[in-house]
Amino acid sequence: MATDAGIILEYGRTRKKKRDWRGFVFQLLFLFPAVFFLGLFMFYPIEETFRLSLMRASGLGDTVYIGLENYVKLFTNEEFQQGLLHVFAWAFWSVVIQIPLAFFIAFSLIAFKNKLTSKLRAIYYLASIIPSAIVAMLGRFIFSPRNGVISSLAARWNWTWLANIDFFGDSRLAFWTVFAVATWTYIGFYIVYQMANIEQIPVDIYEAALLDGATRWQYARYVVIPMISYPLRICAILCTVGSLKLFDLPWLLTFGGPGYATTTLGIILYKQGFINAMYGRASAIGVIIFLLSLIFTVTQFSLQRKEGEIEW
């Protein structure tokens, strides 16, 4: 084996000495579209984002260099503080609620498999594939005051306390209403993803747990969760990074309101950039979103590794 590899390497080296121009041109040609698209629509705008975030740039007037003033203004702005708070709350609660719920469903679907439950995976995933605009439409259908399904059912059964709840208008409830709608649509992917990973666990491990007299739930806790800790970590990262980019559902359901009750970084960026035409300020938000997603990803990986070291 080793000599084979040596020969191949040697062969490669002699080829290289001859300068394989044709191969090089081929590589250039094949990489060009990808580099072109990314350069034009991603890397050039990244540079511009950093530059603009240090400028006062708007629809009117000149662009002037103002240093970090955009950032200072943002962090002292109440709307932005609220948005940041919601992003962190959203990230926290989606990791705490959505992922365990998805794990419960995924594990139960596998551990208690029968004719009925084996059909359910496709149904759970159905909600994830529905576009967010339509999800918002269905969300309003369920939660709207007076005409929504919940209100009209409550009115029918004379539960006035429930019929009078304004799920979108109450500033304490609005966040949770949007969160519930989001859970409905996001959870399908986590279920399907975790099921796929649970199904990858080799049968030896399962049998070993069986021989040791583990119950299903012990098997889940002590075998399955450690075995799929990497996919779970991926889910957590998807949740948190997704919360930074959150825009569609809060915007379509409540426009970030009432007041700032459901505003997110994505909504503030959209408002500043495309309604108020404050390009510099909006770019600063873009930079913050990027830095936060970087921080979230890195900390989650390092946190999980530390936990893993303690457990093993």
Binding site: L38, E48, T49, L269, G273, Y279, S283, G286
Partner: peptide
């Protein structure tokens, strides 16, 4: 370079892109 592009959220570059 392209791997790095995977981690760039579109929100970040939205304004210059537009």
């Amino acid at each position: 370079m392209i791997l790095a592009g995977w981690f760039v959220p579109v929100q970040m570059v939205l304004i210059p892109l537009y």
